[in-house]
């Protein structure tokens, strides 16, 4: 982990209680878990509704990062879109280049892809439609995908598939976070057990279109995160 200690040391030296971080990187670290277990493609997990599951895919978007200063000033971080894949460790850590920020400043970001990026054509990088996080028969990004298998699913190859998206009201599936910045990194813990808390996989194992089901699952997924 790369910390920039110099500004902290200077602040401590000067005895300021108001810590100021000069232009530096804010490290974002994502830790996917199933309760307290790490998630492996080869392992089985049991949900609180007693379904045995194995994960084959979990991907989601974190986008549109903004630094909100104490004085209300908002600095949008251009092109800050990240596609996180829990099975690709290189996507679980990234750093944001922030201008000078103080410990009372806040970081805003979105879980999913917002309306503007859904309605302005083909984008690049993490948002390139060739990443497979885009519907084709109906325009719109898939904000997150959770796929796996469970003997409870009476589907082809016992698969469960949740492709959640939809940018239009009343079922806009975008969710957002606003977090106080008080250190040089931000940890996002994703507890996937919570995603299955209300789902009985024998009954609900496929949500692949926008709508009220997708909307509800977007909230459930959002609540599976703890940020500190």
């Amino acid at each position: 982990m790369k910390y920039n200690f110099i500004p902290i040391l200077i602040s401590v030296f000067l005895g300021f209680t108001f810590v100021s971080f000069s232009s530096s990187n804010l490290e974002i670290i994502i830790t996917p878990r199933f309760n307290n277990k790490s998630i492996l493609e080869t392992d089985w997990y049991v949900t609180s509704t007693k379904d045995s599951i194995q994960f084959t895919k979990t991907k989601f978007y974190l986008t549109n990062f903004k630094l909100i200063s104490n004085n209300g000033e908002i600095k949008v971080l251009e092109n800050s879109s990240y596609l996180i894949d829990i099975f690709k460790p290189e996507t679980l850590k990234f750093s944001l280049k922030l201008p000078h920020f103080d410990n009372n400043d806040k970081l805003y970001f979105e879980l999913g892809v917002n309306n503007k990026m859904n309605t302005t054509g083909a984008h690049s990088g993490a948002l390139d439609p060739s990443n497979g996080m885009y519907w084709s028969w109906q325009s719109g990004y898939i904000n997150f995908k959770i796929e796996g298998i469970s003997p409870s699913c009476m589907t082809r190859k016992n698969k469960f598939q949740f492709h959640i998206g939809g940018y239009q009201n009343p079922h806009n599936t975008l969710r957002n976070f606003t977090i106080n910045l008080n250190k040089q990194n931000l940890e996002l813990n994703l507890n996937l057990e919570k995603f299955f808390e209300f789902t009985k996989l024998s009954k609900e194992n496929q949500v692949l279109i926008p709508g009220s089901n997708a909307d509800q699952l977007a909230t459930v997924f959002y609540n599976a995160f703890t940020v500190f």
Binding site: N118, T119, G121, A122, S130, G132, S136, W137, Q138, S139
Partner: peptide, 28 residues
Amino acid sequence: GGVNHIELQALAPISSENEMGSSLNEVV
């Protein structure tokens, strides 16, 4: 009217199993 922007139109026939049966990823 499922597609909202001309730049994304081609994704539909490329990905449809009844049309080109591929994916943008494969094409790239």
